[in-house]
Structures are given as C-alpha cells and as structure tokens.
Design a protein around this nucleic acid. Structure first.
Length: 548
RNA sequence: GCGGGCGUAGCUCAGUGGUAGAGCGUCACGUUGCCAACGUGAAUGUCGAGGGUUCGACCCCCUUCGCCCGCUCCA
C-alpha cells in the first residue's frame, strides 16, 4: 500500500512539474498513450543520448581490448508486411484467443488446458471429487459439489446450472464403454456442456465455468493502410519492435560499410503494440520507445557474447545511477522463451508497483540465426556472411579447401540487448524519487547529474543591486554547455525547492559577496551543502561533475 | 475482458437537488541577503464526456471514456 502511494506521488509530480502528461487529456485521455512534457523529454533524451553514445559513438571495449565494431540505424516504422510473416510476429502476435460467453474473460486457445490445470480455482476444487487416474465417477458426490461449492466457484458451469443433464451424459458415456476409464479432458468437456448442439462438447472458462466461444485471432500488432484504398493488399503494420528493421538492412550494412563479424547495429525508435492491459503509468503503453542492438557474431562465439552483453548492460544501467540492489538478472525458463529465442535473460528493476518483486526493464536474447534465416527464406535473398578472416586462419591451419569453403560462410548468430527507453524514464523517475520531510519541497528527484533535465539553476540572491546582471551573464555563458535555468523571481528558498523537485543537481547563487570577490555559492542538491566557487571556475566545477 | 475503487482549479482534496470551495502551487507589485518568509492583489473550472429524471443536477439514474487495485494477458 505504501508502495502504491509512492507511485501515486510520482505520477502526480510528473504531471505537476511537466515530466509526463496523459495523451489527449482534454478529450479524456487515450488508454495506453502518454506524452512527455518539457522536463520529461529532456530526461528521455538524456537517457537516449547516453545509450547512443555508449553503444554507437563510444562502444564498450571488447574482450580483445579493442572497442567493439558498432554502427547505428534508423529504419522505418512501417516495413513490408512480409517482414512480420517472416519474423513470426504475425503468427504469434495474433494469438488464437477464446472468449468466455458469460464473463467475457479471454483465454489463449492453446493454453486452455494448462490454465485449467494450474490456475482455475473451481477446477482445482473439483479435482478433489474426481480422480482422473482411476476415472471413477461418483455421481452423488458430483451432484453435492454442484449444489454447494460449485455454485460459488463456477456459477456458470453446466454441471452447476443443470447437474442432472451433464451427469446423465456422463453416465451414458460410462455405460457405453464401461471398461474405459473417463479421461480428465473428456470428463471436463462433459460437465461443461449443458446442451449438445452441432458444435458438440464444450470447453469451460477457467474463471466461471461458462462455455468458451470459438477461437479467434487476437491482434497484438497495430494495423494501418498504405495507399488510398483500405484493401487487404494495402494493409501494413506498425512495427512491434525495432529489431526487424535491423535484420532487413543487415545485408546493406555488411555490403556498404566496413563492419566485420562480430559487429553490432544499434537503433532507437518507437514501437507499437496493442497491449491487452496497458497499466502502471508508462510501464506498459501501446506506443513506446525502444533502444535495441543486434550483435552479429559467429555461432560458436554466441554464448560468450551473450554473457558479455549480460555483464555490459548491467554495468550500463548502474552508470545511470540505478542502485545495484534495485536491479536483478533473471533467466527465462525454457517454456517462457519467445518463439525466436534460444535463451533470454531479463534485467529487472524493483518498481514501486512490483516491489518487493521486480519487473522487466531490458531483455537480452540469444536469437540464434532465427531472424536472418527466416528473412532469407521469405525474401529469397542470401543473408549469410563470408568471413575472410576465418578463411585466412583456416588456410594457415592447413584446412582442406572444402572445409574452408564450408566453414567460412555462415549465417551469423544474434545477441540482442533490447531495452525500453520509456521504461528507462520510469526507472529513473522511480529511482530518483526521494521523500524528505526535512526539506521544504517534501520530496526531491535524486537524478544522476548526467541525467538530470536541468543541470543548474542560476539565481541572483535578490533581484537588485547588480546581482541579476552578474547572474544573467553567468547564465548566458553556461547555457551553451549545460541545460540551465535562470530565475530571478521570488524567495531564494522557493527557487531551491523548485529545483529540488525537478532534480536539478546544482544551484548557483550570485550574492553580495560576488560583487566584491567574483565568487558565487554552489548548492548541491543531495547534501544541501554550499561552497564558494570563483566565477571563472564555475564552468570547470560543472564540467567535472557532469561530463565526467 | 471481468470484479472493486475513483474522476470537482496545475496538484491534494472538501462539498450540497437551488447560480462552485479550501490548502498548496502559479502570476503581478512591494518587501526580501541562503532553503516553499511576509504583505497586497490577480488568473484558473461548461464539477471527465454524453443522455435521462426534475421547475432546477456537481449531487439521483443510464451509457461512455480515463486512472488505480485484483484476476487475466503480456513478442
């Protein structure tokens, strides 16, 4: 409960100070969409720029002591529809779902029996009355269950609504084949069926027991049309991930730049998903921004690179000022893996709304050769890689020409660290939010100085006696290097408090002494300490702390 | 999608079937010499939206949208 209210305070502060607003608010808002306000966009851009810098402009140092080979890309949001056929998104992002005829609950058609077995309260309870191993049916017990517990747990189950009918069918079934024990699935279908019609036996809703409707595709990709007519052949999809754009341009990048395997292609951009339940502020929204990098490497080295990126990405998050105890690596269980992945690890963060549990922040997936192979198949284009270095090496080792030919041409494997930029904004907001009853604002944002939207507030102590002139001059100098704000109005305490609330790490104040000795005070947000710094050292002071 | 809670000023929230309120914030002027000081003044809402009942609805009823929580879902 305390956690929930922390989240409420964060949401409220975000609105009040201009970090995040509900999208289309004057029309009542639109579910799953958010706008980033004046401070929010600064924060988001700082994270984005930091990622880009650390991935593309100044990539990590590899195991060989040299910087990794990395290039950037900005691909289109809309790609050829076949992209999503090849990637598997069209199939898996259109899960067959079945809707309950009574409570409206959606169940994935292929998960129904798992759901019944693992998370249906009424089904679990009913199991006490029927043992699938023996297949024995005790009509009286079932009748009693239907009239007591069943009424509460599964009010819409046929067995509960009309026990006589379903039990008599079951009896017929047993009499008809007395030697064969009734199987669980068959038993379940019988008790879920009130009226036998053309569709035959029914499947029950795991929640209320009513029969489920037919299986229909549930579209998780947003659709649009490219062209003047909205005909099926003009249908296009808004990308559900940025990654595919990279695979589509892989060949061009290999052909036109001088990258050699292993290398990476990084991209930042918007993605769209028809999330079933957008919730938890900007954690799960229908339009969001991703920072994805595809690392192309030799299949034999994929595992090593997977481990490398795991470590590297954790290090990066910590460099943004995220505390280690709030971060966690979690390996996906085999049955949880996406259709494309051989192994995946999530970097999770302890959000206020998941605490004490953690929620996803970034996924690092070993995609194997899945994507390139798929696009190779669907496009008919060769997407393999000819490794000249390996060829030379094999030649030196005295390999046969056949072996050299076979081994030096291969489809690279891919390691993908994919993180949510908008989720990163949320993490920094949560991480920075600090309640402090001892300061006037009552709360402040403890952003890492590098990430803070505003780096410094520049104030004249009072708005007269030559102070504003000096302060404004300082502002004009500093603004070319750092995002600064000049504010001559109102009491100094109020200005400090405002800066605390938006997480500005430094406040520089011009006072009476400045006019005598050319020094200012710099107030540090977290410690509230002030120190006098000579005017000509302010730039260095800031540079040391922000561009370190 | 289901169940529960909520929706009134930028924020937090009172409120009554009879022409809208507080605190904080914001703005202006004055004052002010280091942590939302003080004084004076000001702006702001079709009470989420649409419909209905009523002489009259922020209040009652219906519908809808959005937010939060639980279940479910989550490449």
């Amino acid at each position: 409960m305390a956690e929930a209210s922390v989240m409420e305070k964060i949401v409220s502060l975000c609105k009040r100070r201009g970090f995040v607003y509900p999208a289309s608010e004057i029309y009542g808002g639109i579910r799953g969409f958010w706008d980033y306000g004046p401070l929010g966009v600064l924060l988001k851009n700082n994270i984005r720029d930091s990622w880009w810098r650390d991935m593309v402009e100044c990539p990590p140092i590899g195991p060989d002591g040299h910087p990794l080979d990395m290039v950037g890309l900005d691909s289109s949001i809309i790609q050829h529809p076949k992209t999503w056929e090849a990637s598997g998104h069209l199939a898996t992002f259109a899960d067959p779902m079945r809707k309950c005829s009574k409570c409206g609950h959606f169940v994935r058609a292929d998960h129904l029996w798992d759901m019944l077995a693992t998370s249906s309260k009424w089904f679990d309870d009913l199991l006490q009355e029927f043992t699938p191993i023996s297949g024995h049916i005790d009509t009286e017990r079932l009748m009693r269950w239907a009239k007591t517990k069943g009424r509460k747990l599964a009010p819409n189950l046929a067995l509960v609504r009309n026990p006589e009918v379903t039990l008599s069918w079951l009896a017929t079934r047993v009499n008809g084949q007395p030697d064969v024990p009734v199987e669980m699935m068959e038993f379940t279908r019988h008790i879920a069926t009130e009226q036998l019609n053309a569709t035959g036996l029914q499947d029950p809703c795991p929640l209320c027991g009513a029969e489920l409707g037919p299986s229909e595709p549930f579209k998780l990709m947003m659709e649009s049309y490219a062209g003047l007519t909205q005909t099926p052949d003009n249908k296009v999809y808004l990308r559900p991930e940025t990654a595919q754009g990279i695979f589509l341009q892989y060949k061009n990048i290999v052909d036109t730049t001088r990258v050699k395997v292993p290398f990476g292609v990084a991209q930042i951009g918007k993605s769209f998903r028809n999330e079933v339940t957008p919730r938890n502020f900007i954690f799960r929204s229908r339009e969001f921004e991703q920072m994805e990098m595809e690392w192309f490497c030799h299949p034999d080295e994929a595992r090593t690179w997977y481990e490398f990126w795991k470590t590297e990405r954790m290090r990066w998050w910590k460099s943004l000022g995220v505390k280690e105890e709030n971060l966690k690596l979690r390996d996906h269980a085999p049955d949880e893996l996406s259709h494309y992945s051989k192994m995946t690890v999530d970097i999770e963060y302890k959000y206020p709304f998941t605490a004490p549990d953690f929620g996803e922040l970034e996924g690092i997936a070993h995609r194997g050769e899945f994507d390139l192979t798929q696009h190779q198949k669907h496009s008919g284009q060769k997407l393999d890689y000819f490794d000249q270095e390996l060829q030379l090496k094999l030649k030196e080792q005295g390999a046969s020409p056949e072996e050299i030919k076979a081994k030096s041409r291969y489809v690279p494997n891919v390691i993908e660290p994919a993180s949510g930029l908008t989720r990163a904004v949320l993490v920094l907001l949560c991480e920075g939010y600090t309640a402090d009853p001892n300061r006037p604002s009552g709360e402040y944002m403890r952003f890492d100085p590098k990430m803070a939207p505003i780096k410094a507030g520049i104030f004249p102590l009072v708005n007269k006696d030559g102070m504003p002139e000096v302060a404004e001059k300082l502002y004009m100098d500093l603004r070319t290097k750092f995002m600064c704000e000049y504010d001559p109005k109102q009491s100094i305490g109020k200005r400090y408090a405002r800066m605390d609330e938006i997480g500005t790490p430094y406040c520089i104040t011009v006072d009476g002494e400045t006019l005598k000795d050319q020094s200012v005070t710099i107030r540090e947000r977290d410690t509230l300490q002030q120190q006098r710094v000579s005017l000509d050292k302010v730039d260095t002071y800031m540079t040391d702390r922000i561009l370190k």
